[in-house]
Design a protein around this nucleic acid. Structure first.
Lengths: 197, 197
DNA sequence: GTCTATAAATCGATAGAC
DNA sequence: GTCTATCGATTTATAGAC
């Protein structure tokens, strides 16, 4: 390994802090995870965190942005491998089992949003992230619809809204009670899309 | 007004604290609302709060229990007035517009749950509340189904799960961006129930 | 850029008087 | 049961040294 230049070195620090923060935020939640805990776990001091992120909010926003990107990539990759409608629905099912089912991502989004929505700037940022996700979901569903013989009664945007909201709601309930089944998620999606199970 | 006996007087104090806490929790959220703010706004001291509630968690749990009871009563009353399927769906729509749309109740449930789920006892209590709500929703939907000619493909329990989760998810998104439409809520419900809009 | 030390503020909860 | 006073524990964020 060659020696790292100064900007490279800082990028490494930032990446390590980001990864550590992601682990702790997901495991313990937003409020219980202090800047100091992140710094300690990553092997740095609090000052290093504040040199790389303006404050705790920005750190968590960066963590959530990274998570969303990873999850979106994972879903897109899983869908791209499938050539049939049923195959793609199964892929969505598997993705939902992992991402909604583990009960970590959804509650973090909620805890942070409940806090950040009181700040107008952060609130706008979250709204923009949500809008981006809705656009991507709508495009994905429009693609599925284009393969169907009988077009669904609801628009692609409405089906996307329902599907995303359903995932959020079930993710919330599962974070309280892991016994909650997420089967209604995929059953509802299939029904909205094709009109039958 | 006759003089209040001691237990009656305490009941009044408890009720005033509960109402004040409800207002503040809904308006400002769980974390920003301190015990002292509740006490001040209600015209009491912190000691009075701790004489009526074990701690902040119990106070918020009592507030949420009261809200859920009120919302359930409001929905049941609205549904009871309707005699047709479309009338009941419209009633559900109106209820959802108010309760999901105002963007207060849902984020409070989420913020408190994100905090309380780390305590095993509180977590169990929340899971029990959720289970109770799911049973009530399932019974309500089973009643709607019994009036239908063509039975839906999904079970009453699954439709209830989807409908509740959908409401939660849309309530969450609306707490960030009030421009989010809740129309997919009722459209999805109608589709799951009758197979068409 | 990173670390140490510290400021500054908040809040939950309790003790003891009345 | 309610109030006053206070403890104790955290945490965010900054100032300044290296």
């Amino acid at each position: 390994m060659a020696r790292l230049s100064r900007p490279e070195s800082q990028a490494v620090t930032r990446e390590r802090l980001l990864q550590t923060a992601k682990t702790l935020f997901l495991r313990d939640g937003y409020h219980p995870t202090s800047i100091e805990k992140v710094a300690d776990a990553a092997g740095y001091s609090k000052g290093a965190v504040y040199s790389n992120f303006r404050n705790k909010d920005e750190l968590c926003m960066a963590v959530l942005d990274a998570i969303r990107r990873e999850e979106a990539d994972a879903l897109l990759a899983a869908l791209a491998q499938e050539r049939t409608l049923d195959g793609r629905i199964d892929a969505l099912q598997r993705w939902a089992d992992q991402r909604i089912g583990d009960g970590q991502w959804t509650p973090l989004e909620m805890e942070f949003s409940a806090h950040a929505r009181r700040d107008p700037v952060l609130r706008d940022m979250l709204a923009e992230r949500n809008a981006t996700m809705m656009r991507a979901s709508t495009a994905l569903i429009a693609l599925q619809i284009s393969d169907l013989e009988h077009k669904p009664e609801m628009s692609a945007a409405a089906i996307a809204s329902a599907t995303v909201a359903l995932g959020i709601g079930l993710g919330f309930q599962r974070s309280i009670d892991p016994a909650i089944s997420i089967k209604p998620f995929i059953d509802t999606y299939r029904t909205l899309l094709t009109g039958c199970l």
